[in-house]
């Protein structure tokens, strides 16, 4: 059974977004996503300073099976990326909501996240997929 976090916002494409106390947004992929991907072997994050747009691709996660695009839930400037994933991409499998985060964004408009799903909405979207 996949783990979910109440405080996060979700995209139907299986990314999560967490609004931090300083107003920045941390982005990763969900527990369900890492489970269905299988062993993650490579993560390509955007570069620090790059602009990302809500709903547009911002990176790639590759498992032993396939490559999948990562979409950013918000628009803004990338202020940090998880460099540790370069040497330890399996962290995405082990800790998808904590150590396995992908990148942080300084958002231009936080209200974009109003369009994202809450935890119940994401669970419902997963059930529809089944």
């Amino acid at each position: 059974m996949s783990e979910f976090r109440k405080e996060l916002k979700y995209l139907p494409s299986h990314e999560w977004a967490r609004v931090e106390e300083d107003g920045t947004v941390t982005i990763g992929i969900t527990d369900h996503a890492q489970e269905s991907l299988g062993d993650v072997v490579y993560v390509e994050t955007p570069e620090v300073g790059a602009d990302v747009n809500a709903g547009e691709e911002a990176g790639v996660v590759e498992s032993v099976k396939a490559a999948s695009d990562i979409f950013s839930p918000v628009s803004g400037v990338v202020i940090a990326v998880n460099e540790a994933l370069g040497d330890a991409p399996e962290t995405v499998n082990e800790s998808p909501y904590d150590d396995g985060w992908f990148f942080k964004v300084k958002p231009t408009d936080l209200s974009e996240l109003d369009d994202a799903l809450d935890v119940d909405g994401y669970k419902a979207a997963l059930e529809e997929d089944e």
Binding site: S13, H14, E15, I29, A33, S36, L37, V61, A66, S68, D69, I70, F71, D129
Partner: peptide, 8 residues
């Protein structure tokens, strides 16, 4: 990310 599972 998007699921690519399809069943026949």
């Amino acid at each position: 990310m998007a699921d690519t599972n399809s069943y026949s």
